[in-house]
């Protein structure tokens, strides 16, 4: 195509230059994601005070729930038959899973903004999956607050909880936290996908997020039969931390489901994550770039 160049337009030819047509290499999606993520991290670490501020904000937000649960157990000694150490472990597993969701995948929260402001156009002009670009759009420093508080509470709770820690249970704990994070991410991706039609899903996502945060630290039994089933099959809160926690604490007999269900999050997590991703890709076909 370069050799057809000269004849097309009668602009005075400047000094002789070679046409610019470089050979482009293939770029793997993972590499593209990392390139974008590294840039976002660079921005975040350039604004150190904002990083600290926002991380502290997240710690305060999650910490207020911790304080609430602490005061509650201080007065009542147990909730739904679970004592302080058990609830603390549940809280920590939930928060760590939340961090697994927010650290790498937290940027789903900007989707409304990207769509309504037309910035989603920009994602579609690049040779990278818009979904990956969304996840790397900016790095939310608050997620580092979630992660730090989660790890600290987990280490403390692991000692308070009546669990016999063996290499096996530790591996199960780690895997199950990752799976819990994938559950939450999958749900948020699915909600994000509604943005392409509804334009505003922010309230919905915040509602789900705070419901997970505020009602995650309780054994599911407190919500009664209907509540437990709803928080398992409608809003999959149970898979994030409660079900695996019953396995670790030897409390599977209190489940409404067979005891095996306590291990199900290892499969449900990846499954929901994939389903959420597919929902996003599917709904993104309805993207109507705003005028202008």
């Amino acid at each position: 195509m370069a050799d057809e160049a000269g004849e097309a337009v009668g602009v005075a030819a400047p000094a002789v230059r070679a046409p610019w047509r470089p050979q482009l290499q293939e770029v793997s999606p993972l590499r593209a994601w990392w390139v974008l993520m590294a840039a976002s991290l660079k921005v975040v670490f350039a604004y150190r005070s904002n990083l600290v501020n926002t991380a502290l904000g997240s710690v305060a937000l999650q910490g207020s729930q911790l304080l609430f649960v602490g005061v509650l157990l201080h007065r009542f000694e147990e909730v739904g038959g679970w004592g302080f150490g058990e609830v603390a472990l549940l809280f920590a597993m939930r928060l760590c899973a939340h961090a697994v969701c927010t650290v790498p995948f937290g940027q789903h929260s900007v989707i409304d903004f990207l769509i309504n402001e037309g910035d989603y156009d920009r994602l579609l002009l690049r040779p990278v999956s818009p979904f990956l670009q969304l996840l790397a759009w900016r790095f939310n420093p608050g997620s580092l607050g979630d992660l730090s508080l989660g790890v600290v509470v987990l280490v403390v709770a692991a000692q308070l909880a009546p669990v016999d820690w063996t290499p096996g249970t530790v591996v199960f704990l780690v895997l199950t936290i990752v799976a819990g994070g994938l559950v939450e991410a999958g749900v948020q991706f699915a909600l994000s996908s509604l943005s392409f039609r509804l334009r505003a899903t922010w309230s919905l996502k915040v509602t789900v997020d705070t419901t997970f945060a505020d009602f995650g630290p309780y054994p599911l039994g407190v919500f009664g039969t209907v509540g437990s089933l709803a928080l398992t099959f409608v809003l999959p809160l149970a898979f994030i931390a409660y079900l695996p926690a019953t396995a670790l604490l030897g409390r599977t007999d209190e489940l409404l489901l067979p005891a095996r269900a306590a291990y199900s999050s290892l499969a449900v997590g990846p499954l929901l994550f994939w389903a959420g991703y597919r929902a996003f890709v599917h709904q993104s076909r309805h993207y109507d770039s705003p005028a202008g």
Binding site: L24, Q25, R31, A32, L36, A39, V43, G118, P127, G292
Partner: peptide, 25 residues
């Protein structure tokens, strides 16, 4: 009306990002 560059990074960084994303050696 709307830039496609990375707002908070030096201009040069935007070019390097573009080069990496498009597979320019």
């Amino acid at each position: 009306q709307r830039t496609q560059l990375w707002h908070d990074l030096p201009l040069r960084d935007s070019f390097e990002l573009v080069a990496k994303l498009y597979g320019l050696d």
